[in-house]
Design a binder for these strands. Structure first.
Lengths: 224, 224
DNA sequence: GTCTATAATGAGATAGAC
DNA sequence: GTCTATCTCATTATAGAC
């Protein structure tokens, strides 16, 4: 069964399927897969547990549906942004800063302005990608997401055609680590900075992140 | 109750407390707190479940003891390395590369050469620090670990005395994200690089990580 | 310290009425 | 689609013998 993303009309009361997906999204993001029970989800969705199994079958399938509800839009938007930027540059390599922004801004933007569902989804994605624990039953969706990474790496290769491939892969890995860390909005940054930086101020973090990583990319991927 | 780290003598069969801690360390690292049941742990430790509660009381307390068994040695080693490097530089700021190595190498070294216990501990630390899910019942230990961060940030301030404080905090946050990502050894890097880079080759990753982040730190923390 | 046995509750999943 | 009731097994934790 396929359930569309929450209705555009905020006044429309969501169907039970949507309420269940929303509740799952929130609780999986907060507590992880094993830490969120179907009872908790049912209570949060104000529905009996049997309605969850009726709509989604097993808990694993529910989790998959939570991801599946949004991942395609997320991936399409990101790929689209990268493609547009490359088209606009008329064959010349797109600027590194622009490319990085295309790569991370769609998800960050949805997390900030897409409503609580997208916020929870972003946290959940960060958790799931960071954690090999979810690899097994997320395999198909991880594959989908890896296409975005391939597009980003390919665009980087055009900017740094002489870069060592291993260094390039590691550079992207380091960048990805930070993106995931930003998306989950754990309290790490707030705590460490004594409140000077807020982990929920994603825009500020991304705006600093781009020149930061651009500097490292240039230094390490431009052969002397 | 306080249990010492595993015996130095590898032939000495570990006590039941140690076996339980070892099994917990492994399973918590692999599946997270909620995903590892006390039954699983008991089976892996070849002990009845009641022996776990007898030794450690609750599951939460068991988790805390798993962390507590190693964190003090880890923190002490890291702080010691940073202090030694600063002493050796005779009042001049220590080099950024040296400082970064002092900051991350102790944990990485233990993960690579400290035996399976330290490997699992490193993964678990990465998981727990990344994830705000564990903040509540790890608060005291997170506080301990934050002292390491404070020492690192203070040493960075000496190297970049005119740096904007917010940028410094963000730079350290970005670095920390990657350190955690490296410690958990999720398959992300292997998958993305098509096998070119191995997530268990911590030394290679750290050796590239230091010049990578040093370049970014210098670029962003040196006012024009 | 170690074990068997068991309590008390929570878990995922199902049956069947409406 | 929705609900109540229930099954079956896993969960944390405890009691009490040795």
């Amino acid at each position: 069964m396929v359930v569309k993303a929450a209705s555009v009309n905020p006044d429309a009361s969501p169907s039970s399927s949507e309420r269940i997906l929303n509740a799952s999204e929130m609780l999986f993001a907060e507590r992880g897969y094993a830490g969120a029970s179907m009872r908790d989800i049912a209570r949060s969705a104000e529905a009996p547990v049997s309605l969850i199994t009726h709509h989604f079958g097993t808990k694993e399938e529910l989790f998959r549906q939570v991801i599946d509800r949004r991942i395609h839009e997320q991936v399409a938007t990101t790929l689209d942004d990268i493609a547009k930027a490359q088209d606009a540059s008329n064959g010349a390599p797109v600027s590194l800063e622009t490319l990085m922004r295309c790569y991370m801004e769609p998800m960050v933007h949805k997390s900030m302005h897409g409503g609580p569902g997208w916020k929870n989804y972003a946290k959940l994605m960060g958790l799931a990608m960071f954690n090999s624990q979810y690899d097994d039953f997320l395999k198909p969706m991880i594959d989908v997401y890896d296409r975005v990474q391939d597009a980003f790496v390919a665009a980087c290769r055009k900017i740094f055609p002489d870069a060592d491939e291993r260094r390039l892969q590691l550079a992207v890995f380091f960048l990805n680590s930070s993106i995931l860390s930003v998306l989950v909005e754990s309290g790490m940054l707030d705590r460490q900075s004594g409140g000077l930086c807020k982990s929920n101020d994603l825009q500020m973090i991304v705006d600093e992140m781009i020149p930061f990583y651009a500097a490292a990319f240039r230094q390490r991927l431009t052969p002397a």
